[in-house]
């Protein structure tokens, strides 16, 4: 590749730069068009993060999984299962009435085990991730309903306490959901970049047979990413339970697809091996911004959110295809 000038930006950075550009453009559009309604206010920005917290946290696992060239369709159902389990276990009427400090770790362990089981099926039986996690989706959703068939409102002091946690920032408070979101993205970015596990995810996503010959323990990494996917889905479920104050077996339908959309808009290639954790967070914010703009328009129906998200997703898939073709031609 010969350029008239020296660029220190590699090919792998192009999708994430496109994501950043889209985020800035969408934000600028909203700020200019709806400037009179304080679009760019701190309050709005905090609520943007808050609105994206559940999907954002779940998308951490999805990012690792997609980087490893897999897919996870069970996310939404696992979130629903988690909220239901928590609601039942803390309820003295429906369940044992345990303290959330006990129940939340149990929920996280269940989610992780669920993901681990999916990972084991995918690795040991060489089953396609799409089918395994599709089965996982039905299983988790069914389990959620069998735990309790209706929404359960949670009345527990500890939950009220967690709902009121907030770090003051300007005139608004940063709620627990946003704190958890940011802390876990920081950890995930760190893991993806500075640990052997993180780099091995990229390695097997880039080329699995080569990774094996390079001495990467494929099984450990693969099962690891799905376990992580289960863990972050469960964590997203915990945050959703706190935020909404209920357990809801019938909610969170399609969250796995929103998470995948955020990952792809965030510049991670569905073909695996290329992408950045931070991109997914940007993707979540972009989807949130679009929703915010359309809400502010007032006259547009909320389906326009989906239409814009669809168009954007399409654009990113095209960009990825073009990049892959370019790589093939020059490589």
């Amino acid at each position: 590749m010969k350029l008239p000038f020296r660029l220190s930006i590699g090919r792998q950075h192009i999708p994430i730069l496109a994501t950043l550009a889209v985020l800035i453009l969408v934000f600028a559009f909203g700020a200019i068009r709806h400037g009179d309604r304080n679009f760019a206010s701190l309050y709005n920005i905090v609520s943007l993060f808050r609105g994206g917290a559940v999907i954002g946290i779940a998308a951490i696992g999805s990012t690792f999984i997609i980087l490893s060239k897999g897919i996870d369709l069970s996310v939404g159902a696992v979130i629903a299962l988690t909220t239901t389990i928590i609601a039942v276990l803390v309820s003295p009427q429906l369940g044992p009435g345990w303290h959330p400090a006990v129940v939340i770790p149990i929920a996280l362990v269940i989610g992780t085990l669920f993901g681990t089981a999916q990972g084991c099926l995918i690795h040991f039986f060489e089953l396609p991730p799409f089918l395994v996690t599709l089965a996982g989706m039905f299983l988790a959703r069914g389990l959620a309903f069998s735990v309790h068939p209706q929404n359960i409102a949670i009345e527990h002091d500890a939950f009220h306490a967690m709902q009121s946690i907030g770090i003051p920032l300007g005139r608004s408070d940063v709620p627990l959901a946003v704190i958890v979101l940011l802390v876990f993205y920081a950890i995930a970015m760190f893991v993806s970049r500075y640990t052997n596990f993180g780099r091995e995810v990229y390695t097997i996503g880039g080329d699995e047979p080569s990774a094996r010959l390079m001495g990467v323990n494929i099984g450990r990494v693969k099962i690891g990413v799905y376990a992580l996917g289960g863990l972050t889905a469960a964590l997203a479920g915990v945050i959703a339970t706190i935020d909404r104050g209920d357990g809801s077996p019938s909610e969170f339908v399609g969250y796995e697809l929103d998470a995948i959309a955020a990952v792809v808009i965030g510049g991670t290639l569905l073909t695996g091996g290329v992408g950045f954790m931070i991109g997914t967070l940007l993707g979540v914010l972009i989807l949130g911004l679009i929703r915010l703009i359309i809400d502010n328009e007032g006259t547009l129906s909320s389906w326009w959110t989906n239409i814009s998200a669809g168009a954007l997703l399409f654009g990113f898939i095209l960009l990825q295809t073009v990049l892959v073709r370019l790589a093939k031609r020059s490589g």
Partner: peptide, 25 residues
Amino acid sequence: VNLVPTLSVAENLCVGRFPTRGGLI
């Protein structure tokens, strides 16, 4: 070539034997 085309050159040389300190690359 049994390397990973989407990783950097440095990573291709170091995967499986990254220099680490306290488990961090």
